[in-house]
Amino acid sequence: MATIKTLEELETFGLAEAVREKFSAALKNGQLVFAPSKHEQYTDEATGMRCELMIVEGLSKRPINRPTQPGSDEKISSDKLEQVKKKNPFMKPEPELTVIQDLVGEYRLILNKFPNIEEHFLMVTKEFVQQDTLLKPVELQLMHTILGQLNTSQSRFFAFFNSGPESGYSQFHKHIQFMKLPPNFEVYQDALVAGSEFFIPRELDGSEQPLMNKQLTFKHFVLKLPRKFASEEEQSTSLAMMYMYLFKRVLNVFKEQGLDSTKISYNFLMMEDWMMIIPRSHAFFDGVWQNSLGFMGLFTMKDLEVKNKVMHHGIGTILQECGFPLGSDDDRAKYDEFGY
């Protein structure tokens, strides 16, 4: 198992091949709960959003390890937290699933034991850290650098982070996930950033706003990223500033709605040339569980019953109910003395 001490080492590691070989070996030896799913492409009539519908075998078998359930007002007690830590699969991951044992001293890269798609893997903290903590600058750097190592003309990966009790995570140990897009799948974020210029937003200047697809039903905020940064310092500073700007958008949504600040939840997604945040109000709607993937247009479902619910309600309705409705004023910044 590899040890990577610096970002520079990671850039020359050959990560794509390492993930592919580890996944193939683990699948052959029965260490993954995975069967290729049938992919069905679908365009939501209400929003025009291109979607990929997948029934994923592992979703009905994966363990759920959370101190509280979505929608609960229960406070996280020390006893509950200790129970979660004891059942934590990320503290001592299986060697057969470990791609990088030591990543810049604080992290590991491991395969998802219950993958949604081939080569689905995670970056986890080596020590226990709660999932609802903020992303660190180094974590954002690692996400961007890893994506740069994985993406080719034939294969595109994205990263996502589910944070907060209503964000749709199943494990309370801090983890960032990496998945590749299905073949020939186009994401709406690409069209948003295609005609825009990179900029670092400033709270007091309302002239440059996050990008949005006005046809969608849910609040979302997208910022374009440059393909390359001049230095690691510029990469760290720029990514951190942009992430915190988006996070403050989530804080303002919760404040405007008069919601409990202890339940702030969001999904954060990144590809090589954009980052995006979606404030979350509920983890599920009528039993249809959503994490970051649904807001990418990737609907993974555990069985046909859930798929029927998705088709009955419509993707636009489900995402709106799990997020916050996109209003007519979402194209204007709301910065005043009461905003973040």
Score class of each variant (00 low, 15 high):
residue 259 L to K: 15
residue 305 E to R: 12
residue 323 G to E: 04
residue 153 S to T: 15
residue 305 E to C: 01
residue 220 H to F: 10
residue 262 T to F: 00
residue 324 F to M: 07
residue 74 E to Q: 13
residue 80 K to V: 00
residue 20 R to S: 14
residue 189 Q to V: 12
residue 117 I to E: 13
residue 95 P to W: 02
residue 180 K to M: 14
residue 140 L to H: 05
residue 298 L to T: 06
residue 325 P to W: 03
residue 13 F to Q: 09
residue 7 L to S: 03
residue 141 Q to W: 04
residue 198 F to Y: 15
residue 17 E to D: 14
residue 216 L to A: 04
residue 284 F to D: 14
residue 235 Q to M: 15
residue 270 M to W: 08
residue 56 V to D: 03
residue 127 E to V: 11
residue 71 G to A: 01
residue 97 L to D: 06
residue 318 I to H: 02
residue 107 Y to M: 05
residue 59 L to D: 03
residue 56 V to T: 15
residue 132 D to Y: 13
residue 131 Q to S: 10
residue 305 E to V: 11
residue 279 P to T: 07
residue 228 K to L: 07
residue 133 T to C: 10
residue 229 F to D: 05
residue 319 L to W: 05
residue 259 L to T: 09
residue 196 S to Y: 01
residue 35 A to L: 10
residue 216 L to W: 07
residue 256 E to G: 09
residue 339 G to A: 15
residue 131 Q to V: 09
residue 240 A to K: 11
residue 256 E to I: 00
residue 70 P to A: 03
residue 266 Y to L: 06
residue 80 K to W: 00
residue 326 L to R: 09
residue 137 P to R: 11
residue 77 S to W: 08
residue 73 D to S: 12
residue 91 M to A: 13
residue 100 I to W: 09
residue 146 I to F: 05
residue 66 R to G: 01
residue 251 L to V: 13
residue 253 V to G: 04
residue 243 Y to K: 07
residue 16 A to M: 09
residue 75 K to L: 13
residue 52 E to K: 05
residue 102 D to Y: 07
residue 93 P to W: 11
residue 191 A to G: 04
residue 8 E to K: 12
residue 307 K to T: 08
residue 116 N to F: 12
residue 169 Y to E: 04
residue 24 S to W: 00
residue 44 D to M: 09
residue 32 L to N: 03
residue 279 P to V: 04
residue 198 F to L: 12
residue 5 K to Q: 14
residue 314 G to W: 05
residue 247 F to G: 01
residue 113 K to C: 01
residue 247 F to K: 11
residue 140 L to I: 02
residue 156 R to L: 11
residue 23 F to V: 04
residue 160 F to W: 03
residue 236 S to K: 11
residue 307 K to E: 14
residue 162 N to H: 02
residue 137 P to F: 07
residue 144 H to F: 08
residue 294 G to E: 05
residue 25 A to T: 14
residue 310 V to R: 05
residue 224 K to Y: 08
residue 43 T to K: 13
residue 25 A to W: 00
residue 70 P to T: 04
residue 98 T to L: 09
residue 134 L to E: 15
residue 35 A to S: 14
residue 295 F to N: 07
residue 29 N to V: 00
residue 118 E to S: 12
residue 309 K to G: 00
residue 131 Q to T: 11
residue 229 F to N: 06
residue 146 I to P: 03
residue 165 P to Y: 06
residue 86 K to L: 13
residue 134 L to M: 12
residue 263 K to H: 08
residue 123 M to H: 05
residue 24 S to G: 05
residue 326 L to I: 03
residue 301 M to G: 06
residue 269 L to N: 12
residue 44 D to Q: 08
residue 302 K to R: 13
residue 244 M to T: 09
residue 197 E to N: 13
residue 233 E to D: 06
residue 262 T to N: 12
residue 184 N to Y: 10
residue 14 G to C: 09
